[in-house]
């Protein structure tokens, strides 16, 4: 006697289906890393070949090898410039967090404060920082303070907007519950509104991280043309004047890596803070 054929066939089909899905999942996992790396390698190779085949001079387009060489050769100059830019970026981000969250709480607690100041926060946000920066460097004597102010103007708004939204997005039943138990304003803020706002705040923080780097770079460009500075943007400008194109590329590479590291760091922070309870940080089986 053999087993019933239709049943085993169906089972086999299910098993094949299952195996196919598992295989697709594995392929997905590998491809997520392999594909971007592959694209990267192909582009670098293509870049290198184009430069070599067309005999493009290095002051017009340096090959990738030369860029890396310059990065190593000029590391002392570029690294100290990187530290300056990074310092401004992180300080601006810190001030943006304090300012953004502080203003959000103030606006949330006082409707009149919100009515009075919110329009100006929006105006500050929508005016391109490149157009404000030259003015800032006229009136602000201290260079670091000027850079910080520029970067802050760009970075604080997403934190303010997101945190405000979060503070207002509390569950209405929980609000009622806090009222029934006689919670004070401070208790409601501390135990209900701030935790509710955390995921929103972290979303804003990730955007602000990238923006504060942009703000710092833009401010350095503006300040740099005024003849002072030693950040990465200034190095790019300086190298441009001297037709040192390989160094421009090397500095650009550092800035890009910097931005990626900031974004990854903030994403990791967000994940660690939310992984226990928030849907965004919880992986589900599909």
């Amino acid at each position: 006697m053999t087993a019933l054929p239709p049943l085993t066939a169906a089972e086999a089909r299910v098993d094949a289906e299952e195996a196919r899905r598992a295989r697709a999942l594995r392929v997905d996992k590998v491809a997520r890393w392999v594909l971007p790396v592959l694209v990267f390698l192909i582009l670098i190779g293509l870049w290198d070949r184009i430069v070599v085949w067309n005999r493009i001079p290095h002051y017009i387009l340096p090959g990738p090898g030369l860029v890396v060489e310059t990065l190593i050769k000029d590391w002392a100059i570029l690294f100290s410039a990187l530290l300056v830019t990074l310092q401004i970026t992180l300080m601006a981000l810190a001030v943006a967090v304090i300012g953004g969250v502080g203003l959000a709480i103030l606006f949330n607690q006082s409707r009149f404060a919100e009515m009075s100041f919110y329009p100006y926060a929006v105006i500050l946000q929508v005016t391109p920082v490149v157009s404000i920066a030259p003015l800032i460097f006229i009136y602000v004597e201290n260079r670091t303070a000027g850079l910080l102010l520029c970067a802050w103007i760009v970075a604080f708004f997403p934190i303010l907007a997101n945190t405000t939204l979060g503070l207002n997005s509390t569950d209405h039943n929980l609000r009622d519950l806090f009222r029934i138990y006689g919670a004070s304003r401070w208790q409601r803020l501390r135990y209900l509104q701030l935790p509710s706002a955390l995921p929103y705040f972290l979303g804003g923080l990730r955007i602000a991280g990238g923006l504060s780097l942009i703000g710092a770079i833009v401010a350095e460009y503006v300040a740099g043309t005024a003849g002072i500075g030693s950040g990465l943007a200034f190095r790019i400008l300086e190298a441009g004047y001297r037709l040192n194109i390989p160094r421009m590329f090397a500095a650009l590479l550092l800035i890009a890596v910097c931005g990626v590291v900031i974004f990854a760091g903030l994403s990791f922070l967000s994940h660690m803070l939310l992984r226990k309870w928030h849907d965004s940080a919880i992986r589900r089986e599909s």
């Binding site: 569950d171 039943n173 929980l174 006689g182 208790q187 135990y191 309870w277 928030h278």
Partner: peptide
Amino acid sequence: TLMPWATVAQNVYLPFRLR
């Protein structure tokens, strides 16, 4: 109507915490 960021025990503790 539970606070998703708090554990079960912390949720039940809430009325006392607010006092």
